[in-house]
Design a protein around this nucleic acid. Structure first.
Lengths: 140, 140
DNA sequence: AAAGTTTTTGCAACCGGGTTGCAAAATGAG
DNA sequence: CTCATTTTGCAACCCGGTTGCAAAAACTTT
């Protein structure tokens, strides 16, 4: 994704597009899967982790990214794909491979609706399936 | 739950029922919701956290407990309710309340099956809905 | 019952992700 | 250009989770 577009995207979410923030959002945009803070640290060795952390926090607050909880490996961040400003309305199922320890987006599988007990109100949801991915299926 | 029963339960999972292990399993059995390591520490101030940790790890390995990932608050442990030895076959949806920060079991809501892409194999799953629980609905 | 072996436990230390305080650098307004 | 505001890097910290190690407890064997 181009700097230009990213800058506009940030702006659109009320985030001043600084160089660092553009880099962080670019890394997220270019990745095909949600990333952890440390993965971003590796990818962006020019920015201190506190800076990445603060960018991510801000992005999250402004609903530019959403988070998913990975198996113990901490939180993963992913650009919101929907282009409306509402909170996480593009939530899909994630898949964690126990062999290669990677987390994939199953974009085309939406999180199913379930009927909650009386007076419970849903705000967001996290659905991660663990198992073995196609790539690891044959191996070892 | 009685010591006697617990002891038998541990035995049944191939776990030598030591005093500490019985205490840990009792705390889990008596709780109406999955607990974190630190919550167990508070409940069982007579046992060191490393001991609780090792008991939990062992329980998990032997499929006496399963784990769910709570919103950042770390891992929560919960006794498996099913009485067969298979791995997590009694998985249900969990609810995390953003007001009181507690995690509830929605025992009667099973995790829905979804169709995975070709060659993906499911082993287990984690489905947590976040929102506001009935108890907190009115408040503040 | 004593000696030896194995398992369990507590303690202290460590590890790593996440988070914060602070002062320097960059940005923007007057 | 100067002053106020925002952003950034650095270092330090916090805390849950984890491990090494030696003492204590439980089991064996004689």
């Amino acid at each position: 994704m181009k700097q230009e577009e990213l800058s506009e995207l940030l702006d659109h979410h009320g985030i001043k597009p600084t160089a660092n923030r553009i880099l962080v959002s670019k890394a997220l945009a270019d990745a095909d899967r949600p990333l952890t803070l440390s993965e971003l640290e590796d990818a962006l060795h020019t920015i201190d982790k506190s800076g990445i952390f603060r960018a991510l926090s801000l992005f999250h607050e402004r609903h530019l990214v959403h988070t998913i909880e990975d198996s113990g490996n901490g939180v993963r961040y992913e650009l919101c794909h929907s282009h409306n400003d509402d909170a996480d309305d593009d939530l899909h199922v994630h898949f964690y491979c126990e062999r290669c320890q990677r987390t994939f987006c199953l974009e085309h599988i939406p999180i199913p609706e379930v009927e909650l007990p009386e007076d419970y109100r849903k705000i967001s949801a996290n659905f991660t399936i663990k198992g073995v991915c196609a790539g690891c299926k044959g191996k070892r």
